[in-house]
């Protein structure tokens, strides 16, 4: 558990760096690092498939998409973020962390829960047999994404809107 907490803290640190870094490329890399750590956390929680997905898809594919976008919008790089945001961040984060710990210990520690039976089977069986409807949803959402990207990058033949 201690090691897990260290990993979680590292993930928060990487994400904080992604938020605060001035350079977008560094931010994207920090985000990928945070995904990598989350993947390891998933693996250690006994969810190897979710870990692999997190590492290969989120840390890999999504980071590539981010890099591509950053490359395509190079000149827009120099958006000035306000300075106070960075200075105020540690203060806000500290206040939040205190509230967070207070709430989690005070209220959520008393979450009532039904006793559950341990589940049987393998991951594949659960995904394909129990949650088959989700697979249809996955197909639909991939289709929606592909069609959206096609629509957003289509050639504008006769339409001059602005």
């Amino acid at each position: 558990m201690t090691f897990q907490i260290i990993l979680l803290a590292a993930m928060i640190a990487a994400s904080a760096f992604a938020v605060l870094a001035r350079d977008l490329l560094k931010a994207a890399v920090a985000l990928a690092v945070s995904s990598l750590i989350l993947g390891v956390i998933f693996f250690r929680m006994g969810a190897p498939y979710a870990g692999v997905f997190e590492i290969s898809v989120v840390a890999g594919l999504i980071t590539v998409l981010f890099m591509l976008t950053i490359a395509l919008t190079k000149q827009g790089d120099d958006v000035r973020e306000s300075k106070t945001v960075k200075i105020a961040f540690p203060l806000f984060f500290l206040v939040f962390a205190l509230i967070d710990i207070f709430i989690m210990r005070g209220i959520l520690a008393k979450v009532p829960a039904l006793e559950g039976a341990a589940e049987a089977g393998t991951f594949g069986e659960v995904l394909w047999k129990e949650r088959s409807f989700d697979l249809i949803g996955q197909l639909a959402v991939i289709l929606a994404g592909v069609l959206s990207v096609l629509a957003l990058f289509r050639k504008r033949d006769r339409h001059d809107h602005e």
Binding site: G137, A140, V141, A144, G145, L147, S148, V149, A151, L152
Partner: peptide, 8 residues
């Protein structure tokens, strides 16, 4: 699914 399609 509906939301992603609606953004585009």
């Amino acid at each position: 699914v509906a939301a992603v399609a609606s953004y585009a």
